[in-house]
Simulated assay, not measured.
Amino acid sequence: MFAERIGYIVWFSDWKAARGLDKYGTLHYLSRKMQYAVLYMNADAAEEATRNLQRLPFVRKIERSYRNEIKTEYESNVPDKTRFYGL
C-alpha cells in the first residue's frame, strides 16, 4: 500500500543551499544552528539519491536514521499501581 521510506540525516555547511534538498526526497526538518537536515525518501531510490547527495559541495556527511527500526511496543512486568492512588 505505502512505499517503504528511509530517513537520512544530512549534515551540511551552507544553510541556503540546503533548502534545495527537497529535490531528493521529503525534507522534514532543517536545523540552522546545528546545520543538519532530516530527509525521507523511498527505499527503492535511496541508494542513488545518497550517491547524488554526496557529490554536492555543501554536504559534509550523510547518516542513516534508525528510527523505524527502534522497538516502539513496550512491555511492563510491573503491576499498575495507579488504582491504589485514586479517590
Results as ranks from 00 to 15, higher is better:
Glu4Ala: 11
Ile9Asp: 00
Ala17Lys: 15
Thr82Phe: 03
Phe12Cys: 00
Ala43Tyr: 07
Tyr40Leu: 08
Ser65Pro: 09
Glu73Cys: 06
Ala45Glu: 15
Glu73Gln: 12
Leu30Tyr: 02
Leu30Gly: 02
Thr26Arg: 13
Val59Tyr: 03
Arg60Thr: 09
Val78Glu: 08
Ser65Met: 11
Phe84Pro: 03
Phe58Lys: 00
Ala17His: 09
Gly86Phe: 14
Leu39Glu: 05
Leu27Trp: 07
Glu73Met: 08
Trp11Pro: 00
Val10Glu: 01
Phe12Lys: 00
Arg64Ala: 13
Gly20Asn: 15
Met1Val: 12
Ile6Asn: 09
Arg51Ile: 08
Glu73Ala: 10
Arg64Met: 14
Glu48Ser: 14
Trp11Met: 05
Ile70Tyr: 05
Met1Cys: 10
Ser65Cys: 09
Leu30Glu: 00
Leu87Ser: 11
Glu69Gln: 14
Ala37Asn: 05
Glu73Trp: 07
Asn68Ile: 08
Glu69Met: 11
Ser76Leu: 10
Phe12Met: 01
Gln35Gly: 00
Gln54Asp: 11
Gln54Tyr: 09
Gly20Leu: 12
Val10Gly: 02
Thr72Glu: 09
Thr26Leu: 11
Phe58Ile: 01
Gln35Ile: 00
Trp15Asp: 04
Tyr74Leu: 14
Leu30Ala: 00
Ser13Thr: 15
Ala17Leu: 15
Thr26Ser: 12
Ile70Met: 10
Gly7Thr: 06
Trp11Val: 00
Arg5Trp: 06
Tyr36Met: 02
Ala17Thr: 07
Lys61Thr: 12
Glu47Cys: 04
Asp22Tyr: 13
Thr50Gly: 01
Ile70His: 04
Val59Gly: 00
Ala18Lys: 00
Lys81Leu: 13
Ser76Cys: 14
Tyr66Ile: 11
Asn52Leu: 12
Lys16Trp: 07
Ser65His: 03
Gln54Trp: 10
Ile62Gly: 02
Gly86Pro: 05
Ala37Cys: 05
Asn68Tyr: 12
Arg19Cys: 04
Tyr24Asp: 00
Thr50Ser: 03
Leu56Arg: 02
Thr72Trp: 06
Leu27Cys: 07
Tyr24Asn: 02
Glu63Thr: 11
Ala37Thr: 01
Ala46Asp: 03
Glu47Phe: 09
Ser31Tyr: 03
Lys61Gly: 01
Pro57Gly: 09
Gly20Ile: 02
Ala49Val: 06
Thr72Cys: 03
Ala17Ser: 14
Leu21Glu: 06
Leu39Val: 08
Ser13Phe: 01
Gln54Ser: 10
Thr72Ile: 10
Glu69Ala: 11
Phe58Ser: 01
Glu4Leu: 13
Ser76Thr: 15
Ile6Thr: 10
Gly86Gln: 15
Lys23Cys: 05
Gly20Arg: 15
Ala43Pro: 01
Trp11Glu: 06
Leu27Ile: 10
Thr72Tyr: 05
Lys71Glu: 12
Tyr66Pro: 08
Tyr85Thr: 13
Lys23Phe: 08
Ile6Phe: 09
Arg60Asp: 10
Lys61Leu: 12
Phe58Ala: 00
Glu4Arg: 13
Leu56Asp: 04
Ile9Val: 14
Ser31Cys: 06
Ala45Ser: 14
Tyr85Lys: 12
His28Arg: 15
Pro79Lys: 06
Lys81Met: 09
